[in-house]
Amino acid sequence: MAVANSYFVPGYGISRAVIQNEIRYHCGPDAIVRPYTFQGRDGFLITTVGPPLTKAQIDDLKMSSREYEEKQSRIANESSVFVNAPISINQRIRRGQ
Rank of each mutant, 00 (worst) to 15 (best):
M1N: 11
V3K: 13
A4D: 09
S6E: 15
Y7V: 11
F8S: 08
G11Q: 05
G13A: 09
S15Y: 02
A17S: 10
Q20W: 05
N21I: 01
E22S: 13
E22R: 15
R24K: 14
H26K: 10
H26I: 03
G28M: 06
G28R: 13
I32K: 13
I32H: 08
V33E: 03
P35Q: 07
F38R: 13
R41H: 08
R41P: 00
I46K: 06
I46N: 02
T47E: 06
T47N: 12
P52Y: 01
P52Q: 08
L53F: 00
T54S: 15
K55E: 15
I58C: 02
D59P: 00
D59G: 01
L61F: 02
K62R: 15
K62V: 04
M63K: 11
S65Q: 12
R66N: 08
R66V: 08
R66H: 11
R66S: 14
E67I: 15
E70G: 01
K71E: 07
K71W: 02
R74T: 11
N77S: 13
E78F: 09
S79W: 04
S79R: 14
S80L: 10
V81N: 06
V81S: 08
N84F: 09
N84Q: 14
N84H: 13
A85L: 11
P86F: 11
I87T: 14
I89F: 10
I89W: 01
N90T: 10
Q91R: 11
R92C: 04
R94N: 07
R95I: 03
G96D: 06
